[in-house]
Design a protein around this nucleic acid. Structure first.
Lengths: 138, 138
DNA sequence: TATTATATTGCAATTATTTGCAAATGCAAT
DNA sequence: ATTGCATTTGCAAATAATTGCAATATAATA
């Protein structure tokens, strides 16, 4: 990779933010430093960084794809489809799972930011309550 | 759910195809039966079916989201980023992994069509060869 | 059957993402 | 510094997906 200015600035931005940013958010963040940069350039730069394994790309169910720097420890997420809450899980358990699959299939998994969807504990409890309520009401 | 004609026809179509279809493919398939149907209606119908757990929705790295009927056994996929080959894996191992995470987090995972990316055995071998070749050449 | 409430649809507009192509840029070897 | 080549960029257009809103259709029930 050529040391393209955009790539470097995106990395710095993501490094400061420590969050899941959309392409548009990245675009707006770097505009202060590169006012003339084009959105498609940002998309292509992010794509490059993803391919290089420096940035993760994920659909967390928010409507647009989000990007995050793959700097410190690898991690993954559980996204609650009821309340939208995002829980973070470390790589250990995921890693064991990947290893098992790799052993069985000889397939080398590179997924570095797994997103699993479901229902968080609080929302499970809430729907249990709701169920009881319904039963009582009828 | 109301017995909407579109929903039913989509289910029948996906049931016949036994494949990952894009929204556009679903749209074109059902046109023979519903010539006037709108693409956004198809998107909304698919969204409904996904929410009901009847259809899976996935990004398999092909550029557009694909849908598949969740009829027979649950399964998941490994997608090779080099050659695009798609390998299918059963739910057993995945299920064990989910159970462990659920135990640790109390989070109820509903992901029903997991897509993991990486490199298949053949492409790993190919890149090993390439590496050797490069080493020899230098 | 008439009425009401709710779900579904079409259409147009909006948002999100990708692509082709020509111009500009960076890098390496003269 | 100049040339040659590959990468990166901007711009406009294409593709994918989502949304608001009014019209229509369905189901429940009065």
């Amino acid at each position: 990779m050529r040391t393209s200015s955009v790539d470097q600035i995106i990395i710095e931005t993501l490094s400061k933010e420590h969050a899941h940013l959309t392409s548009l958010q990245v675009f707006e963040e770097i505009r202060s430093q590169l006012p003339a940069v084009n959105l498609s350039t940002v998309y292509r730069a992010l794509e490059r960084l993803v391919k290089l394994g420096k940035v993760s790309i994920s659909d967390m169910g928010t409507g647009s794809t989000v990007y995050e720097l793959l700097a410190d420890g690898l991690h993954h997420h559980l996204v609650c489809q009821k309340c939208g809450n995002v829980m973070t899980i470390g790589h250990e358990e995921v890693s064991r799972f990947f290893a098992t699959i790799q052993q069985q299939t000889q397939f080398d998994i590179v997924t570095n930011h797994l997103i699993l969807f479901g229902t968080c504990k609080a929302c499970q409890a809430a729907s249990e309550l709701q169920k009881d309520k319904t039963t009582t009401d009828n």
